[in-house]
Design a protein around this nucleic acid. Structure first.
Lengths: 135, 135
DNA sequence: CAGCATCCGGATGGATACTG
DNA sequence: CAGTATCCATCCGGATGCTG
């Protein structure tokens, strides 16, 4: 039997863990909705379909690379639908699917907890930082 | 009046947006709980206090740098408490605060949505990938 | 209009070595 | 035991230029 260092054991554990992560539903969901742009795209689509350029304008500050990438991922996951109209110039509309729409209440719950408790968090941070300042 | 390029306009918008993000409660919460290790630490502490080394063992795969960093952030946000016992060797216990505990139902809701809908998502991905394969 | 391909700088996070 | 400090590879995401 081989002797393994703590580092090797941890590495093995992390590989196992990564494999687990890759199939953990909650983990996948968190990875999705926590993406910087995902929540904004979802929100932007909450009240109806929008064209690509609409989204780019509404979500000011997003690069077109990230907007496209975000929309692709959401489309792949079945949360957003993509409809191409072959006119000149091309027109592409994005909309929430029922699955994507079912996510909105959860986003609402997150927003609700955040708004309800943010002051406690801010206070905790201030307290923590002040303790640190003193020594 | 200056003429600004689209890139400059987007940059300005992103700065504004970043400032907004920094104070957006929901955004802050998402950033917190979506952290790779945060949900694991929270879960590990759900059924009672644990020592540092307990956590390191229970959350196999975490480096001690990330474990410490995660605990510090959670402590700063008032979600986790840290109790040092000045014995030899030193003993440090971590526990959920009431605030941290109040987060558990939300984590549960996330888990619930994920488990309820993951099959739809997986199916959507398979469908999307197959369409891509063909052309 | 709605993208894709490429390049590149900064942040993220793991490994390692050291400390009270 | 419970960390801190440092180094470094990797990845993420923005800018830019080009296309159907």
């Amino acid at each position: 039997m081989v002797t393994r260092t703590a580092a090797q054991l941890r590495e093995a554990a992390r590989e196992e863990y990564d494999a687990f992560m890759a199939t953990c539903p909650a983990r996948q969901l968190l990875d999705r909705i926590s993406d910087k742009w995902v929540s904004l795209v979802l929100t932007a689509l909450a009240d109806g379909p929008r064209r690509y350029s609409d989204l780019a304008r509404k979500i000011a500050g997003v690069s077109q690379k990230m907007l496209t990438q975000t929309l692709r991922v959401l489309e792949r996951d079945g949360l957003v639908s993509r409809a191409v109209t072959a006119s000149v110039p091309v027109r592409v509309d994005y909309a929430l699917t029922p699955l994507g729409r079912s996510l909105l209440p959860l986003m609402g719950a997150i927003k609700a907890w955040a708004e309800e408790h943010i002051e406690e968090v801010v206070a905790a941070r201030a307290s923590y930082d002040q303790r640190g300042d003193n020594g």
